[in-house]
């Protein structure tokens, strides 16, 4: 039953992706991106990843859609139609074929005694309650077993926030300074000519 729901959601994801490729109106593209994220949330729930699903619902469906819409408000909404080399789509088709052929050698799904499920993950599942007293294994791995990862991640978010603030709010001051120095140098040159 779960796998049927998953297959239906995956088909819908592919349909939405084709829509995103074909659409030219950026507003519609962003809204389709939100739909894609919500379908992805359903798929992640089917795959038992509840924490990831909640993050994707809050971030992918909510926040990044709002950010993209607020950028569209200050830029253009239509995309120009351009012609590129005809060989590119053929290239992508070949890449798709090769990669799908390569998936024959990937891990089989849904089998419990694979090496990827039996070493460190099994240790976390067995010892999380004993070591940390936290039943949610994802939280205990995120905050306790792999605290360094999360420290780096928080630093990355902090750096990204600083970068956005510098790009969008520091520039206005810089521009004013540049224009002022330009006008000063311009007046100097004028006075020099005189």
């Amino acid at each position: 039953m779960q796998s049927i729901i998953g297959m239906v959601l995956m088909t819908l994801l592919a349909v939405v992706m084709i829509g995103i490729i074909r659409l030219r109106n950026l507003f519609a593209v962003v809204i389709f991106g939100g739909i894609y994220s919500l379908l992805m949330v359903g798929l992640l729930l089917v795959l038992d990843a509840v924490d990831v699903a909640m993050t994707e619902a809050a971030v992918g469906g909510g926040l990044s859609t709002v950010l993209m819409l607020s950028v569209l408000y200050s830029t253009k909404e239509e995309e120009i139609r351009l012609v590129r080399m005809r060989a590119f789509p053929l290239f992508f088709m070949v890449v798709t074929g090769v990669l799908i052929f390569a998936t024959w050698d990937l891990l089989p799904l849904a089998i419990a005694d694979l090496p990827s499920h039996t070493h460190v993950s099994a240790y976390y599942l067995d010892n999380s309650l004993k070591d940390t007293g936290v039943p949610n294994v994802v939280t205990s791995v995120l905050a306790s077993y792999r605290g360094y990862d999360t420290l780096g991640e928080v630093t990355v978010i902090f750096a990204a926030g600083i970068a956005v603030l510098v790009l969008l709010q520091g520039s206005r001051i810089a521009k004013k300074k540049v224009s002022r120095s330009d006008s000063i140098s311009g007046s100097d040159s004028v006075s020099g000519l005189e």
Binding site: D51, L67, S116, S121, Y124, L125, R146, L168
Partner: peptide, 25 residues
């Protein structure tokens, strides 16, 4: 289910929206 990929992807999502916002800026 295996919790380790979920932790990694949780990290990836939040870093992804941070990089997306830098790109949009």
């Amino acid at each position: 289910s295996n919790p380790l990929p979920q932790v990694l992807i949780l990290t990836a999502i939040v870093v992804g929206v941070a990089t997306l916002s830098v790109g949009l800026a």
